[in-house]
Write a protein that binds this DNA or RNA. Structure first.
Lengths: 202, 202
DNA sequence: TCCCCATATTGACACCGTCCATTTAATAGT
DNA sequence: ACTATTAAATGGACGGTGTCAATATGGGGA
């Protein structure tokens, strides 16, 4: 049996993870500090090191889990709407945009290469899975085109991520006032969806 | 005349700015700390507050200057290559990509909405100038299209920024190995350039 | 039952940003 | 020319952070 549970605190690792996620949502990544997490979990500031080597390891675990969630959301969307050739744009786009707008702090963490460990095996695995899935769908949708899958995938992901990053960092708000509420969430996807098929002969 | 120069240190404000920029390039934004800048400038850690209210003010000044540089680069590019209807894609794209790859730490600072003051008047002014210039060129290139200027501008800027952000944060490197050196710098621009004119009837 | 060892505690160190009282010295006013 | 004003620089303090090391604790395997 051996419930793999420590002595002092049930399993502290899970508690630390959950607390960290709560703090991330509430205070942003700056609020996810080793000491704050420990405080909120009711343990001393030195306790977490037994479960997460350092802050970067904790944040990496958080990020990895979020990528997993996104991947699930994508797979779910793909299986639901199996069909048309341009579905991948909606599925991937919706998965990313929904996640980003619903959990801005979690989304922003995903791209803080300075705070998470990009060499982490589990993290890069799930990122690869998302990217490969995207490429597969593109390949399936347009077998032969003048641009290879990678270029289309990167262009698409770049646009979606760039849009989210600019929106979530508050840049658009401070740009021209005209832009503030301008881009209907799906506008960019509509644009990309109309652009790609016509030129890349799907 | 009153050369507007302080007593102890020539003009410390300029020195602080220059030192901060050097540290930014060398150590990233995390290295641009009030105390480090003061140390490098040879003054006490309390001195900078007389010229920059706090760290955010210093970083905002840095960011504002970089946007100015980019704007100049764009205007220069536009006046040089006055002509074709798709020039704006190359000019804006090249300006952003060149700046981003040449000064990755400076570029990344521009989008750290948590570290700079987005309400700053001078900062938002120059950001508006860049955005307006982009919209003007789009308007000039395609007077009537089904998508308004703002949508095209945001789509384009989103793609360029997203690409840069993902490259500079090291994400692509850790993604699929196939992607590592894959996207030739101009590939995305070529893609966008080929996409837009065909659909949006320039 | 007893001992081992993973886990938790506590304290230390070196940073950081920010505020404060104090000292400095350049300039303005007489 | 001398003084008063005032902006600018100093040094110390406070509370916060990450990380490390020494110590205490107690559950499970022998």
């Amino acid at each position: 049996m051996s419930k793999k549970q420590s002595f002092h605190h049930g399993d502290l690792k899970r508690v630390l993870f959950d607390v960290a996620l709560t703090l991330l949502d509430r205070d942003g990544v700056d609020g996810v500090t080793i000491r704050a997490v420990a405080r909120e979990a009711g343990v001393s500031h030195g306790a977490p090191v037994n479960h997460y080597r350092d802050r970067k390891a904790l944040l990496t675990a958080l990020a990895q889990r979020q990528f997993e969630t996104i991947l699930c959301s994508i797979e779910e969307g793909l299986s639901d709407a199996a069909g048309g050739s341009r579905v991948w744009i909606d599925v991937f786009g919706k998965a990313m945009l929904d996640f980003g707008f619903n959990f801005p702090n979690r989304y922003k963490l995903l791209w803080r290469g300075d705070l998470i460990d990009l060499q982490d095996a589990e993290l890069s695995t799930v990122m690869d899975q998302i990217y490969d899935q995207l490429c597969d769908e593109i390949e399936r949708a347009m077998p032969q085109s003048e641009f290879d899958r990678d270029t289309v995938a990167i262009a698409f992901w770049s646009m979606v991520h760039g849009y989210l990053d600019m929106r979530l960092s508050g840049m658009f708000v401070s740009l021209n006032d005209k832009v503030s509420g301008k881009p209907r969430d799906g506008a960019l996807l509509d644009l990309f969806k109309m652009l790609v098929p016509q030129t890349l002969d799907i």
